[in-house]
């Protein structure tokens, strides 16, 4: 039996445009001996569109899923998607108000009592599994990668709701990537909005913000970006060519889910992690990998040198 067990909500994007996030997360969780149980018949969390219409409607769409988890008697629901996470957290927060809760439950077939805590998969991996365990599972170190960790705007915001990591300078992903032995850049734009919300409707606006994130990642010395948000991933990955055309830039920066990087380090095959689904091809950067045992030796040698 798995050591840890969580209710798992992949989110709609992970069924289509961001399948690789779901696939790689499941592979990593399996490697870490964590069982993920999907509530049967889950539906969309409502995301941004719902809360721009009405907060009761938004909370109802989210709470329907939380009610499913409540029925499963599971205290924690984890989701990889920050947008879903925010929807669940908002619903939980607003439903602390009794009259709001009544309104929401009047829209639902099965009422939700507010007993399910929503946590991002990043938080579960960072807090519940921990860096030591992660480091102990590392088989390969990818020496070419210089990673800019990108959290996106709402993974840690607003702080009163997120209650995880720092809203301006989050470090959970930085530390996870470092535990994988990767070279992690100090990235000042790790929480700046990439504009993905307007990918369909306001493309110029989106492209400007995306450009800034890519530009700052390069400025920080990165050759790839690690992400934890499916919408950010799609946005940063998909639009580089077009931005290059508009601006005369030459971005060719792989945008990889942090779970894919974990999987690679744990020794999963690229296929198991659906690496091929990424648009900017990371193969060149992933060519050089070393067995972790060898890098340890290398470090020992350096240490010896230093002390001598």
């Amino acid at each position: 039996m798995a050591e840890k067990k969580y209710a798992y909500y992949s989110g709609c994007s992970q069924e289509t445009s961001s399948k690789e996030y779901d696939i790689s997360l499941r592979a990593v969780m399996k490697a870490l001996d964590v069982e993920l149980v999907e509530p049967e018949g889950w539906s969309c969390c409502g995301s941004t569109p719902a809360h721009t219409v009405n907060h009761v409607l938004a909370a109802a769409l989210a709470a329907r899923n939380l009610a499913l988890v409540e029925k499963m008697n599971m205290p924690v629901l984890t989701t990889p998607c920050p947008s879903c996470l925010t929807a669940f957290k908002e619903a939980n927060h607003r439903m602390e108000n009794d009259s709001f809760k009544k309104d929401v439950n009047s829209l639902l077939d099965n009422p939700y009592n507010g007993t399910v805590d929503a946590k991002s998969s990043l938080q579960i991996i960072y807090e519940d599994i921990g860096l030591e365990t992660i480091a102990s599972k590392v088989k390969y170190v990818f020496t070419e990668l210089k990673v800019a960790p990108y959290y996106g705007c709402i993974m840690n915001r607003p702080p009163a709701l997120a209650k995880f990591d720092d809203p301006e300078n989050p470090i959970a992903m930085d530390k996870i990537l470092s535990a994988l032995g990767l070279n992690v850049c100090d990235f000042a734009f790790k929480t700046e909005c990439c504009g993905a919300g307007y990918g369909y409707t306001k493309k110029d606006m989106m492209k400007e913000l995306t450009y800034k994130v890519l530009d700052m990642a390069r400025d920080a010395g990165a050759n790839c970006i690690a992400v934890a948000c499916p919408v950010c991933q799609m946005n940063l990955d998909l639009n580089q060519k077009e931005i290059n055309k508009d601006r005369g830039s030459d971005f060719n920066m792989p945008v990889i889910y942090f779970t894919q990087l974990m999987g690679l380090a744990f020794g999963c095959s690229p296929k198991e992690l659906a690496i091929k689904k990424l648009i900017v091809n990371p193969d060149k950067l992933l060519k050089n990998r070393m067995l972790k045992s060898e890098t340890d030796k290398g470090q020992d040698k350096e240490k010896l040198k230093a002390s001598a």
């Binding site: 539906s43 009405n54 648009i279």
Partner: peptide, 29 residues
């Protein structure tokens, strides 16, 4: 080419309830 779009929605169980949320919401409004 990357199998990221599907032209058919997945099968669903919760369909009716989700539609009802919207219906009840309209009524509430």
């Amino acid at each position: 080419t990357r199998g990221k779009l599907s032209f058919f929605p997945h099968e669903l169980m919760g369909n009716a309830e989700v539609a009802r949320i919207f219906k009840k919401y309209r009524k509430m409004e």
